[in-house]
Each structure stands twice: as structure tokens, then as C-alpha cells.
């Protein structure tokens, strides 16, 4: 996607002297837009929680903190892999391909854990309309999961731009932009995890 925007950037290095914005400026329209909206989500949740504090506390106790923590670790590690992959591409290090693949696998792990977590909840009779807390739980984690899937799609595209020797065939902007989005997904999960599972 970003190939042309950075076609001139054949050195795969941020242009010296000028301040470098990772990805391209446009990606940040999406990132900041998303952050604003998730902020609105979190405020809505906080207000709703104050209204029914006891109910929210009881319901929150039903969540599986261990699975939540596992998913946090998976996404954090995945994010780290992407960051290392970006740096590897900058240094023309062929391990970038492996790191990107690792990030994708860890992201898939998140999706699988989420699947088991949802199934356990449904099996225990806890569904979308059980109470107002679980509306937030399913909807917020569901919308976040959609972000994870989009992010995995972007990372898969990034992965496909490596050749067999591990050289990156597109501009650095592509992997940077994908990486920035993946970090956003990670950041949103950490806030969600804290809000829903811990507080």
C-alpha cells in the first residue's frame, strides 16, 4: 500500500535531518481517530460502572484473569517482535521476516485464547445480555478483536512483501505503518485488560 509514497526512500532509512514520522502521516489520522473513539468507550464504561458499582464488581470477578494476563503477554511479545522486525528491516537484517512471522503467530495465539475465553463464558450461561457489564465486556473485547484481525491482515501483507532471502521488497513506511497499528492494538488491549479484568 505504501510502496509509492516511499518509492523514493530506497535506502530504507529515515531521511536524515528531517524529523521522521513512522509510517506515513495519514496512518496517524486513523490512529488518533481510533484513540479518541476508544477514549469515548472508556468514559462511557466508567460512567456506567459508577451507576451499578456492585453489579460490575461481582461480574468482573467472574472474568478469567489468567487468560486475560496470558493474552496481554502474547500481545506485548508480539508487539516487541514487530518493533524488532522494523529495526531489522532498517539494518537490512534478514531476520526481519522471521520476527514478523513470530508476531503473526503470537497474534493468532491471542485470537485462539479469546475463542476459548468466550466459549467458557457462553458455556457458563454468561452471554451478551446477562447484565450491563457483560454488554461492555463482549462489545469492547469484540471490537478490539476486530482490530486484532485487521492488524493480523496488515501483518500478513507485510510478511508477504519479504522475499525468500528475507529482504523487504516495499518501502520502510509499510512495515512502520503496520507496526504502529499493531502497537495501537496492543495499547488498547492493555487499557481494556486493566479496566475490565483488574480495576
Amino acid at each position: 500500500m505504501n510502496d509509492t509514497a516511499h518509492a523514493a526512500d530506497t535506502t530504507n532509512k529515515p531521511s536524515a535531518g528531517k524529523r521522521h514520522v513512522p509510517g506515513e502521516e495519514g496512518v496517524w489520522v486513523f490512529i488518533f481517530g481510533d484513540l479518541i473513539v476508544f477514549a469515548a468507550f472508556f468514559v462511557t464504561y466508567a460512567v456506567g460502572r459508577l451507576d451499578e458499582l456492585d453489579l460490575f464488581r461481582e461480574s468482573q470477578a467472574l472474568l478469567d484473569r489468567q487468560l486475560g494476563l496470558l493474552n496481554t503477554l502474547l500481545l506485548l511479545t508480539s508487539s516487541w517482535c514487530v518493533a524488532q522486525a522494523v529495526s531489522a528491516v532498517r539494518h537490512k537484517d534478514p531476520r526481519a521476516r522471521l520476527l514478523t512471522g513470530g508476531a503473526i503467530l503470537l497474534g493468532l495465539g491471542f485470537v485462539i485464547v479469546k475463542f476459548f475465553e468466550y466459549s467458557a463464558k457462553v458455556e457458563a450461561g454468561i452471554t451478551l445480555n446477562t447484565n450491563s457489564f457483560f454488554i461492555y465486556y463482549y462489545m469492547f473485547t469484540g471490537i478490539h478483536l476486530l482490530h486484532v484481525l485487521i492488524g493480523l491482515g496488515v501483518l500478513a501483507y507485510v510478511f508477504s512483501r519479504f522475499n525468500r532471502a528475507g529482504q523487504f521488497q516495499s518501502g520502510i513506511g509499510l512495515i512502520e505503518g503496520g507496526g504502529v497499528f499493531w502497537h495501537l492494538v496492543d495499547l488498547l488491549w492493555i487499557v481494556l485488560f486493566a479496566l475490565l479484568y483488574l480495576v
Partner: peptide
């Protein structure tokens, strides 16, 4: 402009909560 492209992606994702209205009679959704 390319940022308009990203804004369209953003808009698309954020319109999505509208599709679940059939499930709820009260609350944010």
C-alpha cells in the same frame, strides 16, 4: 489525499457498532 483514505477506513470501523442495535433495548449499544 492519502489521509482521506485512512479517514475512510477509520469511519468504516467506527460505524460498525451500529450493526448490533437489534440485540439491545437499553445501554450504549
Amino acid at each position: 489525499p492519502r489521509w482521506v483514505g485512512y479517514m475512510n477506513l477509520w469511519t468504516g470501523v467506527l460505524l460498525l457498532p451500529g450493526c448490533v442495535v437489534g440485540l439491545f433495548k437499553v445501554g450504549p449499544f
